[in-house]
């Protein structure tokens, strides 16, 4: 039997879908028995959500006032202590998991396997490197725990319908006070979250201004899509950084991805390689985005986008 501990990501109110994707990855390990741990100040709602994920055996909760915000330096010693009973410790390759899991790995004296795309054996995994230009099969030492982040875009969320037992647990470790949460400025958006949106409309530098991004928003709202962007658009200040898709931004896998005025640098393409259908709208017919697009339309986005929005309204 392989015991897997998945670290739940949540905001205190709701479980992040990345958790069910980590569970999906864990189920591909031979003989996996999967527990989820939820750390927080008060987590009963989140824990019930986690207990619904199949085939989770058990949900552990660690409720402490210090756990109100996901501070890696505070969470890591608790996760490392819980890891004693497990062969694998998995977290998502989101900002939360990327911050926390290497700290856990170091406390356990092991290296981390980052961004698992597939499980190839008990200690063998595939992962992308060089912005997805190469896929490497890596092997973690067979005699030590595996601490890993799961590339969430490579997995469909595990099914629900479960009702795993929820157990409250105490972890007796001293917690540091050297790192303190101050505030979170979440982007105000009623649009679907990039990680879970089935459709995403993304704009690039060719939009040429913050004002012009309005047409991206309008198209997105017309079809119920999330909004993404290229690094160039973010660097130019046209749109908020959390919308950036690519190697150093979000890695996503929507059913439909519409890239507008995005040339398609490899660093961007690595963020969308698992998308269902890629649509490219660009005036440059030589743009690399067309090499990966399922549907390409060469032309002036300032004409095409309003016309498309009208046609889909």
């Amino acid at each position: 039997m392989s015991k897997v501990l998945v670290i739940a990501e949540h905001d205190g109110a709701a479980l992040n879908p990345s958790t069910a994707k980590c569970v999906a990855c864990a189920t591909t390990i031979d003989g996996a028995k999967i527990d989820i741990v939820v750390l927080g100040a008060s987590v009963s709602g989140v824990a019930s959500e986690a207990a619904g994920i199949s085939p989770v055996a058990r949900v552990l909760t660690v409720e402490r006032a210090e756990n109100e915000h996901a501070i890696a330096a505070v969470f890591a010693p608790q996760v490392a202590a819980l890891a004693d009973d497990y062969d694998y410790v998995f977290g998502p390759s989101t900002a939360f998991g990327k911050d926390l899991m290497p700290r856990v790995a170091a406390l356990l004296g092991v290296n981390q396997v980052s961004d698992i795309m597939s499980v190839e054996g008990s200690h063998k995994f595939k992962r992308p490197i060089y912005a997805g230009n190469a896929i490497v099969t890596v092997e973690a030492p067979g005699d030590s725990k595996v601490v890993a982040t799961v590339r969430t875009a490579s997995y469909q969320a595990a099914d629900g319908g479960n009702s795993a037992p929820i157990e409250s647990t105490d972890v007796n470790v001293e917690l540091p006070t050297h790192t303190r949460f101050v505030e979170l400025q979440a982007g105000q958006s009623d649009r679907p979250d990039l990680q879970t949106a089935s459709k995403v409309v993304s704009g690039g530098r060719a939009l040429a201004s913050e004002e012009n991004f309005e047409m991206i928003f309008k198209l997105a709202d017309t079809i119920g899509a999330g909004v993404g962007s290229s690094r160039a658009a973010v660097d130019a200040g046209y749109i908020a950084p959390e919308t950036q898709v690519g190697q150093t931004g979000q890695i996503i896998a929507p059913d439909l991805y519409i890239a507008i005025g995005i040339s398609g640098a490899i660093q961007h393409l690595t963020g969308i390689k698992d998308a269902g259908t890629i649509v490219a709208i660009n005036k440059d017919e030589e743009a690399p985005i067309f090499e990966v697009a399922d549907i390409g339309l060469v032309g002036d986005l300032f004409q095409i986008v309003p016309e498309l929005t009208d046609a889909l309204s």
Binding site: V136, T137, V138, I295
Partner: peptide
């Protein structure tokens, strides 16, 4: 964590142009 094998990524195919 040792690298065992490197492979190019699965390439997406160019689709249709409208």
């Amino acid at each position: 964590v040792n690298a065992v094998e490197f492979a190019p990524p699965e390439a997406r195919q160019r689709g249709i142009t409208v």
